[in-house]
Amino acid sequence: MRFTLTLLRRWNRPPPTPPEYQIAETTKKYANLPEKYMEDTKKLVYYRTPRGINYRPKKLNLFQNYIGVARPWSAESPQEISEADGFVPYVEPLRDWFFFRGDRVQILTGKDKGKQGIIDMVIQERNWVIIRGLNTEIVPQKDDDDAIIGYSSTERPLLVNTQVSLVDPGDLLPTEVEWSWTEEGEKVRVSKRTGRIIPMSRRNEETFQYQSKETYAENAKDTRKEDMQITFAPKLMTFEMEIAQELGIEDDRIPKKTYWY
């Protein structure tokens, strides 16, 4: 027997994705989708060899470790990833995250310096925040013959750590913020300067599908609230034993002696 690399390939599992390129918690909350779905759509595997001993595990996919303005489940994200062309963004590691949808922030740099706006989109993977109507870039829209049809202004993202700061609701001035707990045990953001609590906006509950839980239109196959009652009663039985008892299945056979190895 010769020990070749092809023999050993099967034992080497693919390395886990580094935390810089994983999907962040704010994105997961906004998406309200299964994690595996988002990862699969982000990966966009073109081809994968079928499972079996006669196939070498191999796949053809897009460059995975890039997250931009487009959300990973959207139809635009594969295009954006292909345009990035293997560019690795360097993201500064942050200990805490303070910026959420609907917060009032002040811009510290750029052409809109000193202006205040409301956060429309949070991209935690890149430490980015998009503010509605501010920090815009005017882009000419072109025809197939490179003739300019018109101009569109799009909001560009801003770095959280240096270009933007949260606003104290008391005096409407930018402050540094920290996490702390109230006496009731709630986790809140508190401004370091005045000690005032910065409340969460209602827009933070917004998801990809609905704006708030009340406005969500129920589907015919969704579980109703009336069906979510507690029916569990502890019994000294396994799952299979209880089901067999209910269905009236009795098994008096004596099993043969077996060996586990």
Binding site: M228, I230, T231, F232, F239, I243
Partner: peptide
């Protein structure tokens, strides 16, 4: 976890 075994079945 709230549901009984029959419901889960």
């Amino acid at each position: 976890r709230l549901k009984s075994n029959t419901d889960l079945h």
